[in-house]
């Protein structure tokens, strides 16, 4: 499959301070790629280089095999949708006028087509009722939703979404999440997505890259990263609370890493094999009610990588 986004050995320095240190990743057609990392890790800088707003110190940052930094990239820019930290909306214009402005800029010259597209998008983000209200009077969440509609005005083939759900209520977050999934699965839109909400990223993204201080520390499919970086944790629930200490000592003696769970009557065994743990506890006369493997999440992976948990 052809890569839609290619980032290879990307380095960016501001006044001799290296903010991106040779990062490499690829995003294929129709994929949603999550770029994660703490504040200042280099996520927005990466996006800005890909969009041609910043020049790389060295390395490649290509979209459809071309750089958006070139003056001759007008046609390419028509295929790209952008939602950055700023909403990109003019406060003195109404919601409708803002979309109309961008529709014209992106070359939707047919008035009827433009009107239909704007109506469709305003309904999609549930803002049709407030279309004649100036953006300055819209709430933060409404502006963000309108900005999302703006980013879709040109039917983009590639979409850069930098924290699209910031300032949104839970209902709108779900709307954005579902829309992103629909865009990628139904219409094959390639999406580069950043967010601090790791659950959201896990639900939306197929692949992720984790940036820490300008370096791509982890990169791959979400499921792959979870199995690579997460510890296997087994929860052993006992029949009687009084046996908790007995079980704890028995496993500790056999060299297991054990923790008492916050809920009563259970202990957690890190990196243990469930049948073996069960066999050993039963042989020690402990009454076990249930043994189950706890699922790991992207959040666990993230904190393990970023904070070294």
């Amino acid at each position: 499959m052809k890569h839609v986004i290619e980032v290879e050995g990307l380095i960016k320095e501001f006044n001799s301070v290296r903010v991106l240190d040779g990062i490499t990743f690829y995003v294929d057609e129709g994929e949603v790629f999550g770029l994660l990392g703490p504040n200042g890790a280099g996520k927005t800088t990466t996006i800005k280089i890909l969009l041609g707003l910043l020049k790389p110190t060295s390395g490649k940052a290509l979209v459809f095999g071309k750089s958006l930094a070139n003056d001759g990239s007008k046609d390419l820019r028509r295929r790209v949708g952008v939602l950055l930290e700023g909403d990109g909306l003019f406060p003195k214009l109404t919601a409708y006028e803002n979309l109309d402005f961008y529709a014209r800029i992106y070359g939707l010259s047919n008035r009827r087509e433009r009107e239909l597209r704007i109506k469709e998008l305003l309904e999609l983000v549930d803002l049709y009722e407030v279309r004649d209200l100036k953006v300055a009077y819209l709430s933060r969440g409404m502006r963000r939703r309108l900005a999302l509609a703006r980013a879709l005005i040109n039917n983009p083939k590639v979409l850069f979404l930098d924290e699209p759900t910031v300032g949104l209520d839970p209902e709108s977050r779900v709307m954005v999440r579902d829309l992103v999934i629909k865009l990628s699965k139904k219409w094959g839109v390639t999406i580069l997505y950043t967010s601090h909400d790791l659950r959201e990223v896990e639900e939306v993204c197929l692949k992720v890259g984790i940036l820490v201080r300008g370096r791509l520390i982890a990169y791959g499919y979400v499921s792959e990263l979870i199995s690579r970086f997460s510890k296997s944790v087994i929860e052993v629930r006992l029949s009687r609370e009084c046996e908790l200490l007995k079980a704890y000592n028995a496993l500790k003696l056999r060299g297991y890493i054990v923790e008492i769970s916050s809920s009563n009557r259970s202990i957690l065994v890190i990196d243990g094999d469930a049948p073996e743990v069960l066999r050993e506890l039963v042989s020690d006369g402990v009454n076990v009610e249930e043994v189950r493997r706890l699922g790991s999440s992207l959040e666990d992976v993230y904190f393990k990588i970023v904070k070294g948990d």
Binding site: G86, G88, F90, I105, G107
Partner: peptide
Amino acid sequence: EGVLETLLCSP
């Protein structure tokens, strides 16, 4: 107004 970057990404 935070519009510039979006404008510069357009054609």
